[in-house]
Design a protein around this nucleic acid. Structure first.
Length: 373
RNA sequence: GGAGGGAUAGCGAAGUGGUCAAACGCGGCAGACUGUAAAUCUGUUCCUUCGGGUUCCAUAGUUCAAAUCUAUGUCCCUCCA
């Protein structure tokens, strides 16, 4: 195995865990946030900048790379790492999220999921086998099982059927796995229903995956529901394997879900919000386009040590975003990713000190102020 | 000097008797965004004490009714001398 996970300790007051990923001689600490680079690029950032802001694992997407440029091109390039010039660990999503975002219910059947190629209109069929075959050609370090990410709310009846199918898909995908240097994760679904989460998790554990994801969150549910979905899932997962909460990146959700036993997270929000002119700060999220920043010559966040905050002012970033200059999107992306990595660092520090609960309250007080969620 | 065209909200531009406080685009002001069909999308943008009030270059008319028709004026543009 190229990538290995070791659990170092578990918090005495919560389910939070401290761990360590070793990869090609490098060591990355968990809990960790993973930026999303769907098309084999974390939008607007170079690999050097990713390393600079503290990124470890980054994501790429099976569905997108399958359509463009095609997995064979990436394989000919020597795999994703060499293709995109990133030597850190890469995780590929399976296309399961596109079942949620692109496909219609009628397009889902036992064999797989029918898609309309969003680039040229071709009819496509993605199956669990195909997804793993593509991911093997892409050469990612962590592969995801092809699952159905189900919208919220959904009935117990529908989710039971869907979970059973996702489990059959997980098995079919696992049977496709050839090389031993790529990990394969199973994905726990089951919506908000404890019995389905338990069933799904236990069945996946029986199949013995290299790690486990919690899926089906961030699909329209409220926060308490999301937290329950995670609790209902992580309690059935083995201690010694990585646990990945898919698509969650709101700062408070990172803290809450670390406390529920999650090790790694991914989310598009730091980069997408950046492109739309938003920045995280320790005192809440701000929209840099707002008029109040027109003549504000202070940094986005005085407490932040990122490249943007050390060199540029709100007024300048506002100008760049309003003028639609790509440098603005890049600077904000650097800042937002740096912010989440820094937050994860503080979370790790507070797990070590057994002060995570206090840290959470302090963070909420600063981030939400009087609003309090 | 002659012939023609035009002036509409912050800007550009539709509308050419009532259904017009006036399409649409830009700009402005806000909001959304969660395993990225998203550098995208949505709302709002004359004033208002939310009852209403005041608008389509100006003035005077025609009409039950005018951004729209008539007269005069002002300014702008194009072509010919």
């Amino acid at each position: 195995m190229k990538l290995q996970f070791r659990l170092k300790e578990t918090d005495t007051k919560s389910m939070a865990r401290l761990g360590e990923i070793t990869y090609n001689g490098k060591v990355y600490e968990t809990p960790m946030f993973m930026p999303v680079g769907t098309n084999a690029t974390v939008k607007t950032l170079s690999p050097e900048e990713l390393v600079e802001v503290g990124s470890g694992i980054i994501l790429a997407n099976t569905y997108h790379l399958w359509l463009q440029p095609g997995e064979d091109i990436v394989a000919k390039a020597g795999g994703l790492h060499s293709f995109m010039n990133y030597d850190g660990p890469i995780l590929t999503d399976s296309g399961g999220y596109q079942v949620f975002s692109l496909a219609k219910p009628k397009d889902i059947n036992e064999e797989g999921v029918k898609f309309k190629n969003h680039l040229n209109g071709d009819n496509l069929l993605l199956t669990p086998e195909k997804s793993i075959q593509i991911q093997q050609k892409l050469g990612s370090d962590i592969m995801m099982s092809f699952d159905e990410c189900v919208k919220w709310p959904s009935t117990h009846e529908y989710l039971e059927e869907s979970v059973k199918r996702t489990l059959r898909w997980a098995k079919r995908g696992k049977d496709q796995k050839m090389a031993n240097d790529q990990l394969l994760f199973g994905i726990v679904q089951g919506g908000e229903y404890p019995d389905l989460r338990k069933y799904c998790a236990e069945e996946l554990v029986k199949m013995d995956f290299d790690g486990y994801s919690v899926g089906g969150t961030s699909v329209g549910e409220d926060k308490p529901t999301m937290y329950k979905m995670v609790e209902y899932s992580t309690k059935y997962l083995p201690e010694d394997k990585l646990r990945y909460l898919m698509g969650v990146g709101d700062p408070i959700d990172l803290i809450e879900n670390v406390m529920r036993g999650i090790d790694i997270f991914d989310c598009v929000s730091p980069t997408r919000l950046a492109r739309h002119g938003h920045a995280y700060t320790w005192h809440g999220k701000i929209n840099i386009k707002n008029h109040q920043y027109k003549e504000d010559f202070t940094p986005i966040d005085a407490e932040c040590d990122c490249y943007l905050c050390k060199h540029y002012t709100k007024a300048y970033i506002r100008h760049l975003i309003n003028a639609k200059e790509t440098f603005g999107a890049r600077l904000l992306s650097i800042h937002n990713i740096y912010f989440l990595h820094t937050l994860m660092g503080k979370i790790r520090e507070n797990i070590k000190n057994h002060t995570l609960e206090e840290f959470k309250e302090e963070f909420k007080q600063n981030y939400y102020g009087e609003k309090n969620e």
